[in-house]
Computed example of a mutant assay.
Amino acid sequence: MGDAPQLPGLRGHAFAARTSYRQPARLVTREGGEDLWVDIQNDERAVLGSAHLSELKIDAPLGSLPRKLTFPDGTVFETTDHAAIEALTGQTRGSILHHYEGFNRRLFGVVALCLAAAWVLWRYGLDIMASAAIAVTPPAVIEQIDVGSLQTIDFAMAEPSRLTDDQKTEVEKIYHRLVSSLPDDVQQEHSFDLLFRNVPGMGPNAFALPGGTMVMTDAFVEDFPDADVIAGVLGHEIGHVVEQHGLKRIYRSLSMYVLIAFLAGDVGPILEDVVLEGNVLLSLSFSRAQETQADEFGLRLSNAAGFDPAGLKRFFKDLDGRFGGSEPPQWKSTHPSSAERVDAIEEYINGL
C-alpha cells in the first residue's frame, strides 16, 4: 500500500469514537513507513482519529450512499467521493460491480438486451419448454387429466344426455368417419372418445379435453342437425387434440411462471397478482391462434372425409347472428370473433 496516493484533504464528515455527533471533517494521508498513515481532522485541524490504511475497515460501495471508513478506536469517516476512496485503496470488494451499476449509457444497452432476451424467451422459450414437457408426460397422466376434468364438469355443470339413441348414432357415424380420415399414425397416437352431455346454460357447444375426450352438448345436436356443420365442428375439436392445444396451454402457463421466477426470483404476493393477470392476457392471443389453427385443421379433415367444409362457415354465421353484438373485444377473448372466422373460412374454401 506504500504506492497509494496521498490525499491533501478529502472532505466528508466524521463521528468521533463512541459518539453520534456528526461534524465536518477531512481525511489526510501521510507517509507511515511501509504503510500509509491516515488522519481524520476537523475544521480546526484537530485530529479525531489516526491509523494505518491497512487497519481501516472500509465499507463496500453501494449506489450513491456514502463510503464509510472505520478506525480501530471506533471513529468513523464518511464521504460521497467514491472515486477518491478508490484511488486511495485501489479496487476493493464490490467496486467493479458498483462501477457497472452506475447510471451511464451502457445501462440503456443492458436494459434493452435484457428486454430482448426476455421477449425471445417468451416468444420461443415457452413453446420449447411446453413441447419438452409434453414429450416426457406419460399417457396415463394425460388420461387422468381427462378423467378428473370430466368428473368436475359432471359434478358442477353437466347432466346426463337426453338425446335419443338415433341422434347419438348419427353424430357418432360422422365422428368415426372423420377419425378414419386421419393418418394411421395419428389414430394410433391419440385416443378419440365422443361423449354427450346436457349442459343447461351453455347452449350449442362442443369441446375437447387434452387426452382426446370430446363432449358435445345436447343443444348442439338439436340446434345444428346438419351433418356438414357437425363434421366441421367435430373436425375442429379433433384438431385441438391432434395439435395438443390443451396440453400446450397448460404447460405454457406453468412455463411462464418458471420463466418469471428464473428472471426475477420470488416476485412477492402483489407482483404475483400482476404476473397472473398479465399471463392471462398474454395467453389470449396464443389461444386465438390455436382456434384459427383448429379451424383450418377441421376444414381439411371434413373435406377429406367427404363433407362440405362450408358447414363450419354456416355454424359461425349462425353464431354471429345470435351473439355477434355481444362478443367481447378481440384482445379480451380466447377466440377470434365469429365474423372473422367466417371470413377466414371463406378464404380457405376459395383456395381449395
Score class of each variant (00 low, 15 high):
Leu113Arg: 09
Val258Asn: 02
Ile270Phe: 07
Ala14Asp: 01
Arg45Asp: 08
His236Leu: 06
Arg314Asn: 15
Gly201Thr: 01
Ala289Asn: 10
Phe316Asn: 01
Gly232Val: 06
Glu277Lys: 10
Pro336Leu: 06
Pro200Glu: 15
Arg93Val: 12
Gln330Glu: 15
Leu247Ser: 14
Thr29Cys: 11
Thr89Ser: 07
Ser338Lys: 01
Glu291Cys: 11
Phe196Gly: 08
Ser302Ile: 08
Arg106Gly: 11
Glu237Ile: 01
His236Val: 02
Asp193Lys: 15
Asn205Ser: 09
Gln167Ala: 01
Arg93Asn: 02
Leu107Asn: 11
Val147Asp: 08
Glu172Ala: 12
Val267Gly: 03
Ala46Arg: 14
Asp226Glu: 12
Ser338Asn: 15
Leu299Tyr: 12
Arg341Phe: 09
His240Ile: 00
His99Pro: 00
Thr19Gln: 09
Gly63Tyr: 04
Ala135Gln: 03
Glu172Cys: 02
Asn279Cys: 09
Trp119His: 13
Met157Arg: 04
Thr79Tyr: 09
Met157Trp: 13
Leu263Val: 05
Leu56Ser: 01
Pro183Ser: 04
Ala206Thr: 00
Leu282Ser: 06
Thr92Asp: 14
Ala227Gln: 13
Gln290Ile: 09
Gly278Trp: 03
Val280His: 13
Trp119Ile: 10
Val186Pro: 02
Ser95Gln: 05
Ile58Pro: 14
Leu259Trp: 02
Leu178Ser: 04
Asp226Val: 05
Ser161Glu: 00
Gly324His: 07
Arg30Leu: 12
Gly311Thr: 12
His176Glu: 08
Ala158Phe: 04
Ala84Phe: 05
Ala46Val: 05
Asp154Gly: 00
Glu243Leu: 13
Asp295Ser: 07
Arg123Gln: 10
Ala305Arg: 05
Leu282Asn: 09
Phe286Tyr: 13
Ile85Lys: 04
Ala83Glu: 01
Arg18Gly: 12
Ile96Thr: 11
Gly239Leu: 07
Phe224Ser: 00
Lys248Gly: 09
Gly298Cys: 07
Ile85Met: 07
Gly232Thr: 01
Leu150Ile: 12
